[in-house]
Simulated scan of single mutants.
Amino acid sequence: MDYTIQSKKFEQLSLMELYRILQLRNQVFYVEQRCDDLDLDDKDQQSWHLTIYDGDILVGYARLLPPGLSYPEMSIGRVAVSASYRGHQIGRLLMEKAIEQLEVSFGKGPIKISGQRYLEKFYASLGFETISEVYLEAGIEHLKMLRPAF
């Protein structure tokens, strides 16, 4: 498939792009996963927003956070793939592009994430190492994971 991959700062997003991002995040985190935390946390305005489109359909999204916003390290969060596109390697493509974009935007350095426990092996395959015990975030088991600077 030919996907369009973009990374934009918050202020570069069009209203429709922002709407599609919030729509996908809402579908994945609130409808599917029944998260009980507030999605809009005032970090979007300081982050980069990585999107993957199939035509005009948003199929993947990740929020790229600069160092010091969530952790001392740069971070990737709000990773979401549209249900109808799962199993097509969108998640891997999304994470690989997120890592690349973080390095372009903020330089090489460690990347820290709060990953859902069931995705631990997936994140490990991308170079992330588990650095915490399991904890609940938004009612879902998570682990802190760190990808050292390479």
Results as ranks from 00 to 15, higher is better:
58 L>E: 03
47 S>D: 05
47 S>N: 03
65 L>W: 06
97 K>R: 05
142 H>R: 11
80 A>L: 12
2 D>E: 08
14 S>I: 08
150 F>W: 12
58 L>G: 03
101 Q>V: 02
77 G>A: 04
49 H>Q: 15
75 S>Y: 02
94 L>A: 03
149 A>S: 12
90 I>C: 13
124 A>G: 02
89 Q>S: 15
142 H>C: 03
37 D>R: 10
37 D>W: 14
5 I>Q: 12
71 Y>M: 03
17 E>Q: 09
24 L>C: 07
93 L>D: 05
23 Q>C: 03
9 K>L: 04
30 Y>S: 09
50 L>R: 11
59 V>D: 09
20 R>T: 10
117 R>H: 05
106 F>I: 00
83 A>R: 15
35 C>G: 03
23 Q>M: 12
24 L>M: 15
26 N>V: 11
26 N>W: 14
55 G>P: 13
135 Y>M: 12
150 F>A: 04
114 S>T: 03
131 I>A: 04
6 Q>M: 11
131 I>Q: 09
74 M>E: 02
45 Q>F: 12
41 D>A: 09
13 L>G: 10
54 D>H: 04
107 G>C: 05
22 L>T: 07
124 A>H: 00
64 L>M: 07
29 F>T: 01
134 V>T: 13
69 L>Y: 03
14 S>M: 05
1 M>P: 10
117 R>K: 14
149 A>N: 11
48 W>Q: 07
56 D>Q: 10
57 I>E: 09
94 L>F: 02
18 L>M: 14
100 E>M: 13
9 K>W: 09
76 I>W: 00
121 K>F: 07
115 G>N: 02
42 D>W: 13
141 E>H: 07
49 H>Y: 10
